[in-house]
Design a binder for these strands. Sequence first.
DNA 1: TAATCAGGTCACGAGGTCAA
DNA 2: TTGACCTCGTGACCTGATTA
Lengths: 636, 636
Amino acid sequence: MNQTCKVCGEPAAGFHFGAFTCEGCKSFFGRSYNNLSSISDCKNNGECIINKKNRTACKACRLKKCLMVGMSKSGSRYGRRSNWFKIHCLLQEQQQQAAAAMAAHHNSQQAGGGGGGANGVKAMTGVPPPAAAAAALGMLGHAAGAYPSLYAAAAGPRSKEELMMLGLDAGDYAALKHPAVASPSVSSPDSHNSDSSVEVSVRGNPLLHLGAKTPTSGSGGSDGIQSAVSTVPGRPPQLRKDMPPFLPLSFPGLGSMPVMPPPAFLPPSHLLFPGYHPALYSHHQGLLKPTPEQQQAAVAAAAVQHLFNSSNASAVQRFAPQAPILSPFTAQLKEEPTAQHSPKSDVATAYNNNNNNNNNHIIPNGSKVAADELTKRFYLDAVLKSQQHSPPPLATKLPPHSKQDYSISALVTPNSESGRERVKSRQSNGELDEEDGDGSSAAKVAEDEEEEDLVVSMTPPRSPAQLTQAAAVGEERTEAQDNPIDLSMKATGSCVSSSTLSRKSSAHDSDSNEARLDEEELEVSADGEKGADAQRDGDGDGEVEEEEDNSTTETVKTSIEQCNNNNNNNNKNNNSSTSDNEATSDQVGLGLVKRKLDELHREVCESNSKRVRTEVALDAPVKMANSNALDLTTKV
Amino acid sequence: MNQTCKVCGEPAAGFHFGAFTCEGCKSFFGRSYNNLSSISDCKNNGECIINKKNRTACKACRLKKCLMVGMSKSGSRYGRRSNWFKIHCLLQEQQQQAAAAMAAHHNSQQAGGGGGGANGVKAMTGVPPPAAAAAALGMLGHAAGAYPSLYAAAAGPRSKEELMMLGLDAGDYAALKHPAVASPSVSSPDSHNSDSSVEVSVRGNPLLHLGAKTPTSGSGGSDGIQSAVSTVPGRPPQLRKDMPPFLPLSFPGLGSMPVMPPPAFLPPSHLLFPGYHPALYSHHQGLLKPTPEQQQAAVAAAAVQHLFNSSNASAVQRFAPQAPILSPFTAQLKEEPTAQHSPKSDVATAYNNNNNNNNNHIIPNGSKVAADELTKRFYLDAVLKSQQHSPPPLATKLPPHSKQDYSISALVTPNSESGRERVKSRQSNGELDEEDGDGSSAAKVAEDEEEEDLVVSMTPPRSPAQLTQAAAVGEERTEAQDNPIDLSMKATGSCVSSSTLSRKSSAHDSDSNEARLDEEELEVSADGEKGADAQRDGDGDGEVEEEEDNSTTETVKTSIEQCNNNNNNNNKNNNSSTSDNEATSDQVGLGLVKRKLDELHREVCESNSKRVRTEVALDAPVKMANSNALDLTTKV
DNA sequence: TAATCAGGTCACGAGGTCAA
DNA sequence: TTGACCTCGTGACCTGATTA
């Protein structure tokens, strides 16, 4: 799949963190996310255009762009991309191209119907058309559910969120010639998670939220959305076609984007994959899970804005306040806000941990700096969370049907690990720890870290019935759920259905349907590390730990490293003349070694700690899912 | 990689700002770029010859030389150099050496067939052989596409541009013993962007333009080129071999340069990597994307001249006027010209934007000075832009055949990310964003900053099929594209392929072979910004081709890597005294070997399951998708 | 087995520093 | 002012993990 980096336009190396990006932007995002302190404010009011050449010129804007295009730590997924994913990507591209073409023809386009996206953003900024959006979403409802996150989440919501974060308007966004805007949706479609799994990031349209003015905000909004979604549950693929029209509304990004006309080479998406029309996706996202996330997004947006210039400060403030109010998850955020204004120490610590070296340079300032960083991070996380967020799948406390789902998922997704995981997470999480935590402690999860985003795997829609079922499930869950967020997630999740499920489900439709939903998984990773505060820090931190290792790896690495070291050493060593060399050499040599070791450790640790953590949580469930999944499923 | 500073001839410390340079010239350029005011006019009409000894004697000429060899702030790239880059550099060197040898034997060579390069230059000066070049390219077609920018962009175009800027003739340039001329190409190969990505600076051959007197000039030229390329789309790797012969024509730099004899340690480049012959690259660029860039280059050249003495004022004038005319991209340039004579404010603003930091520092002097500086800077930027610039690869709207390509690519390149990327990028790029942006908003981008140069990432070519596809795509795109440049880029771009593939492919040789090539990738990034129409485009487009050889490539790579390693070590190690090392060791490269081996080994993927990612599996669909993703799509 | 990506590794170069 | 050195961010490549 030929894709360009949604951030800088370079050829994409793959789908990273929820968007097609080049290696550089992938790495940048990965680094930056864990080390916000390293990002200094934009010198240009956050208006830098990021492209290949200048991508390294402004970290703040680069990061912003990353967020705008839907990147999030939680958005990632492993494994091969499903064909669907690929297909969707292609479709999106086509659309984008078409859009671009359209745009080229008439810029006004953006302002026009496309404005949906823009509107959304603006709405956030200013007014909210949430109701309308919600309604629209409702229309799309379940359809969206099918491929919720892929498009919606990735594209719309994210974009929106990001936009919010950035304080960009749809207009602004649109203004940016960057397809990013459009791209997001494009990229995002699959984005975040995986092909099959789409992240269920909460991210409703922040705008919507705002617009909706989340009552308890997010939750309220989300609920509304969810309900809307749920209402639409069983839509047949066909609706999807309808979706497109709606998209603009529900899917700001898409709408705003100069979407292109339908791809010529492909038949109507619905024909291809009834359920997968990109537009639908976008809708879904926006519609499905937005609420809680939206709120968060809003918060995040504010934070982001804060990060990038003060230009949007006002917006931020607006949001920030809202966040607490809006989202039920406020608790999650709670700490962070504080951090923003005060709790530097913790944050700082976290950050420090992350940055082993010196982040200092960034902001040599005193506590103030730290505070800023924290704030930034906070915002960022918020944004990210909002984007991806998925309340732990809270998983769910899976309602009764969950069992079926599980089984189903197990059956269905034996392959899809992610699915398993998600399921697991849900189950395990929900049932065991996390979920409860989530449910009760959605906030908790959030706190942990980035949270795990719910990832919904994208899978081809099953039968319309399935969709319907999914929708239905979503509804059920939603109702069942304590958290609006969760619900939203669920709703989204409904979308989820994994292909696996669908497949299997097809066998026994009724069960399968629900099962499908189940399959869709949302992973919640609980980095936990830092907890929330540092957010990712946690990641870093957590990683650190270590545990060790694996001999083999080490050996390999060592060999490699040695080579590297040698080189480095040589280079530096030689210079005797300068003492520097020595230093360097040491650094290099030893440093490398250390690094290597550290890395190794990290790996271990990570695997252990991070991954392990998640895994652990999931393990039991997972195993069941994996090995038994099928069996169970079948049984079911 | 042993390289000499293209500016002063000292051993190069690395690839800085787009060219291999020593620390001194690196620092000088870095300082000077931000402080043009510190540079006084040359006392010698800008005719100072820059070498190790006298490099500090005349800042103006030193800076000019820097520009001539392709240095630009935007040209820099970060991070590790890609193996391909390294390889290509080696190849170029070899070629250069060979060329040099040839030249030694008979100077007439330049004029002659080999003259391609030289001719190009001269042609620029006087006559244009674009058609011929195009034809040649056409021959090479896709092959060229494979590594379009790497060589062409870096080497030829820049040199030419620079020459133009400087008002130097090819002859003059050649006169300079500095390998710089040739070097540029060398350095530039990867230059700008990344290893894999080479910048697709627009720089077609300015000369050609001039000579050819570009009808719409550049565009015309580029179009011609593109078409030619496109026509050749599906070429098999073999053709590449053919390329070399052509190189001279297409690749002025090589031809003109006193290239060295073939590298002893490596087999003929074409043998090694049929598709990658440096010459081809150069061709691509020059042929493919030159036009717009050339125009820009002309403008830039004028500006430069303005900067450096009045000696070439006439030349500048010549070009300046032309630029608008010549290039369709004129729009991009539009502002600049104005700036030259008046609108400093705008320019300044633009600069400021680009330079987040302080462009200010540039001219602390009074308004007058400031004005001068601005002017200078303006020119400088113009030059740089022209150099790098590249329109986004458009990519491509994949035509029908694309399906095959995709499928193929999918099959072939499963692994190769880069290859994929390229392909993707082409498609996506062209289709989506940047290109559009560029196309429509090329000017816009340009304004923003320097513009992005088109970077072509160099990656191993995928399978021939892919290449072909790419080529086809390129063609299509080209046709589709507004910019000729883009087309060229496309042509170039066909290559993709990833190492992975190669590994795997090895299993099935046929596939593998192609795959291997694929691996080698050339990315073309489409900066698109400005559009540069020309430039980038090309590059990106270029991506290229190639497919080819696997084993050889690998071997080559390893050797290269080794060399790299060695060089690095050597250079630095020795340090002190000299740089001599350079020469030496290239060959070595155990590290490289290791890597290669490792890569090969990668094949296995196992999976434990740490992370839990969610996914839903779409089994059935997926399968189809995998192999046929594209097909499916298309089918759909 | 193949395809993908998160992460880690570390080659690299932009920039900064500072002796000369 | 120069340029050797250093620092540190970047990004190409790899590994390992995860899904197809």
